[in-house]
Write a protein that binds this DNA or RNA. Structure first.
Lengths: 192, 192
DNA sequence: ATAGTTTCGCTACCGTAAGTATCGATACCG
DNA sequence: CGGTATCGATACTTACGGTAGCGAAACTAT
C-alpha cells in the first residue's frame, strides 16, 4: 500500500512545482502594491512565471487568491460535523481566541440570522460560493460555509495573527484584511 | 430670516434634482445584478441619466456609493466627541442593538488593536479614507473613523435592518453587505 | 432681447486589466 | 521515436472606469 498507487502518472509534460512560488508572489505583490494594483501580470512576473501558466492552474484571479488564503491559513479546526457542531466549533474557536465565553455566542447570533431588505440583497457569486463550499465540503457537506469562511478568514486570521504576534491591532488592518478577502465574494469584476 | 438667504443662486443652469434617483438606481442595480456587474453605465441607464452627469457629481464610482450609503443609513448618532466617547458611543450603540452589554466591549477589543504582518499590511486608499473621514469630521475630528465607518455601515446596517424588520438573518447577507461596502476601501480598481 | 455661464445628454475616446488564442519549445511516457 | 501536455512568449479580445468635446438647454444679469 504505497501511496500514489491507484492512478499512474498522466501522460504529457508534468506541471512544474511553482504553486508555492505563485502563492508567495501573490501575497508579496499584494503587500507591496496593495490589492487593487496586484494584477495577474504583476503576480506572474513576481513569480517568474508566465501569465498563461497561472490561468492554466486557476480559472480566475479570485480563485487564485482563495486558494492562496486557504493555503496560508486553512479552515477552522473542527471537532464534529453538521450545522450545530459547525457553528459551535466556530463559536468556541472564536471565543477561545477572544478569551470571553459570551462573545462567541454574540458572534453566532449576529452572523446566523438574516435581513431581507431589497436594498441589501446583493447577489453573491454563485461561482465563488461553490468554489469555497467545495473547498470545505470534504470535511462537512452543508451550505453554511459562507459565514464560516468569513469568520475564518477575516476574524480568524485577525485573531490568529494577534495571538502570533501579540502586537496591538490598528483599525486600518481590519479594513485591510477585509479588503483583501472580500473582493472574492464579488461576481464579475472591477469595484473601484 | 428666510432660508437660502446668505448666498444668491450661482450663475448658469442649475443642477437637476436627480441625486435621489441616482441613489435609488444604484441600490436597485446592485440588487438586481450584484455589485460587480453594477457598472456606472448601467446605473446611469437605470437612472435615466447620462454617465457624464454622474461623473460631474461624484468623482468616482466608489464615492458615489459611499454617498449612497451615507444617504441611505447615515452615521452613528453620537453624544460626545473625542476617541473615548466615540468608541463608547459606537460600542453602546451596538450593544443596545444586540441586547447584550458585554458584546460591545468585545467588538471594541477586536476592532481596536492591530496586527503587523507584512502579508496583511494591505495598503488602503488614502483617497477614500479621506473621503469618509471628511464625511464624519464635521462632528468629530479624529483619525479613528475607519473602524467606526466599518462598524457603522456593516454591523450597523445589519443590526439596524434587523431591528427594523425583525426577520432572521442569513449568513449570505453578511457577506453581501460586506461585499457591498468593502470595495471602497480599495485603492485602484478591479478585483475579481 | 441678448450675452454669459453652467449643466444637460450624447458620442467618441483612452488606459488598464482580466481572460483567451496560438505557437514553438520542452519534458515526460510507452 | 510518436503522443501528449505543459511551458514561456506574444498577440489579441472584451469590459469597464474615467475623460474630452460637442451642441443644446436652463438659468442670471444687463
Amino acid at each position: 500500500m504505497s501511496r500514489a498507487s491507484t492512478s499512474a502518472r498522466p501522460p504529457g509534460r508534468p506541471r512544474s512545482g511553482v504553486n508555492a512560488v505563485v502563492f508567495a508572489a501573490t501575497l508579496s505583490t499584494i503587500d507591496e502594491l496593495g490589492y487593487a494594483r496586484a494584477t495577474v501580470d504583476r503576480i506572474a512576473a513576481a513569480a517568474g512565471v508566465a501569465k498563461t501558466t497561472i490561468y492554466r492552474r486557476w480559472p480566475s484571479k479570485g480563485e487564485l487568491i482563495v486558494d492562496c488564503l486557504l493555503d496560508a491559513f486553512g479552515p477552522i479546526p473542527l471537532e464534529g460535523a453538521g450545522r450545530a457542531e459547525l457553528m459551535s466549533s466556530a463559536v468556541h474557536w472564536i471565543a477561545a481566541k477572544i478569551g470571553e465565553p459570551g462573545v462567541g455566542d454574540a458572534f453566532a447570533g449576529v452572523f446566523s440570522d438574516a435581513v431581507s431588505d431589497p436594498a441589501l440583497r446583493v447577489v453573491l457569486s454563485t461561482r465563488l460560493q461553490d468554489r469555497y463550499r467545495l473547498a470545505l465540503q470534504d470535511a462537512l457537506g452543508e451550505p453554511e460555509h459562507r459565514v464560516l469562511f468569513f469568520i475564518d478568514v477575516v476574524v480568524g486570521t485577525l485573531l490568529h495573527r494577534m495571538g502570533m504576534t501579540g502586537e496591538p491591532m490598528v483599525d486600518a488592518d481590519v479594513a485591510a484584511l477585509v479588503e483583501m478577502v472580500l473582493p472574492y465574494f464579488a461576481d464579475g469584476a472591477d469595484p473601484t
